[in-house]
Design a protein around this nucleic acid. Structure first.
Length: 423
DNA sequence: CGACTTTGACCAGCGC
DNA sequence: GCGCTGGTCAAAGTCG
């Protein structure tokens, strides 16, 4: 037990940045009932409207050129644990952020950093296995969100927190070379789908409307008709706002975080230990939902995991609560040798237990989630851990998509992102 | 024996 | 109030 208590309070350096503080303050400050996604980016476009894509693609290039940096295409490579989870680094069903080894950013760590709605700063919970969140949408007291997905467009203020209540770095490269269909979780009472226009948030600091802003607004007007809000029939209390982007989403005003990741495992590991306490088939999804509770004494974090009704390859994990403890240290240790024993399930699909019997414990499953909620290794550690050596497994052909572009080095992408956000 | 899953039953919120 | 549904409980079973 005691060794479970890691001291993750030590590294608060990321939060010592005034910019980050400002961000958190901003997020906490703005607590109204607006949907930051739909308001900030009302151009929600679920469709794969070719015209829209074409426009946004051109716009993206234009913006990139004007900003003086390239917008490299995405690489779904072996450098990411998520990429590993995809089994096939080349064929992916959805835009996934891949961060090259060596890049370590607190912002890309657990959204716990921003999680407390009462403006208390929760210490960063380093990425357990160095697994970078593919996308992080962070909101605090209200519905403010910050998404740091995989698109390569640094967005948001360059010198300070953008004036927008939310700023996004989208993961959905849905313009010229769409590599993934919008993700529409089936069981959410409210789903707001974001697409192209999110790619075109001004990089300018402050509220000044420069040429790019005007261009963006113009673009925005053009695609506004494509807004899509899906409202499934769920009538449960919780209201979720989810982007179409695979990744991490924080629910309005709660500590609920939704993580979507493609995995062949029903319960991809996230660095913490969980005990399953229930399973239920929910409406709108033939795949059963499993309920887990953190086994750490006193920790009230729960989560439920289910396969997306839209895609069997997609696992949607909804975390409720925030770990205020470190993940089990042995898990960290294991991460280094994960490939040897810990991820046998990944290596041998036949080991997967979907029915009765004792399946692999969550603690021994391969670590796929970015651990929004946890893990403690930085990306360098992760990269060195050998996880990237996980063998590629067959990918559901139904979800195969060729990646049109390849990012030469994801590290550079996030350096740019980071600099734009907090530089 | 501890840790964990399974699974039917139970409870509570919500809509009609 | 009733029924539906999601979430939880707890006893039984599995596994190392």
């Amino acid at each position: 037990m005691s060794d479970y208590d890691g001291n993750f309070m030590d590294d608060l350096s990321p939060l010592s940045s005034p910019n980050i503080r400002g961000l958190i303050a901003m997020l906490d400050q703005n607590n109204n009932d607006r949907n930051p996604i739909s308001e900030t980016f009302p151009e929600t476009n679920l469709s794969t409207n070719p015209q829209s894509e074409q426009r946004s693609g051109c716009l993206r290039e234009s913006l990139a050129a004007r900003r003086g940096f390239d917008i490299p295409p995405l690489e779904i490579g072996s450098i990411s644990p998520f990429a590993n989870s995809f089994r096939n680094p080349i064929l992916v069903p959805s835009p996934i952020l891949v961060i090259s080894p060596g890049f370590h950013s607190p912002l890309l760590q657990s959204p716990n950093i921003f999680s407390n709605s009462s403006s208390q700063i929760i210490p960063p919970c380093p990425i357990p296995n160095g697994a970078p969140p593919e996308m992080v949408q962070i909101s605090s007291a209200g519905d403010q969100t910050m998404i740091i997905p995989n698109n390569n467009h640094p967005q948001g203020g360059s010198d300070d927190i953008p004036t927008e209540e939310s700023f996004y770095i989208t993961s959905h490269d849905s313009n010229a070379c769409p590599i993934g269909a919008p993700l529409i979780p089936s069981s959410y009472s409210e789903v707001v789908v974001e697409t192209d226009v999110m790619n075109h948030i001004s990089l300018e600091n402050g509220g000044e409307e420069d040429d790019m802003d005007r261009e963006y607004n113009h673009e925005k007007d053009k695609v506004e008709d494509h807004n899509v809000v899906v409202e499934p029939s769920s009538r449960k209390k919780r209201k979720m706002v989810v982007s179409n982007m695979m990744g991490v989403t924080r629910q309005n005003g709660t500590d609920m975080v939704i993580i979507q990741v493609e995995s062949e495992e029903d319960h991809p590991d996230d660095g913490f230990r969980w005990r399953k306490y229930g399973q239920k088939v929910v409406t709108g999804n033939a795949n059963p939902r499993s309920y887990y509770r953190c086994t750490y004494t006193g920790c009230k974090v729960t989560k439920h995991v289910e396969r997306s009704a839209a895609s069997m390859m997609l696992v949607v994990a909804t975390y409720d609560g925030i770990h205020e403890h470190a993940p089990p240290p042995e898990r960290i240790k294991k991460s280094g040798t994960k490939n040897q024993s810990g991820s046998s399930m990944s290596q041998d699909p036949s080991n997967q237990t979907l029915g009765l019997g004792r399946p692999h414990y969550s603690s021994s499953a391969s670590q796929l989630f970015p651990s929004a909620l946890a893990p403690q290794l930085d990306m360098t550690q992760f990269h060195l851990s050998g996880l990237s050596k996980l063998p590629s497994l067959p990918v559901n052909k139904n979800h195969e998509r060729k990646i049109g572009h390849v990012i030469p080095d994801g590290t550079e992408v996030f350096k740019v992102i980071w600099e734009q956000l907090f530089g």
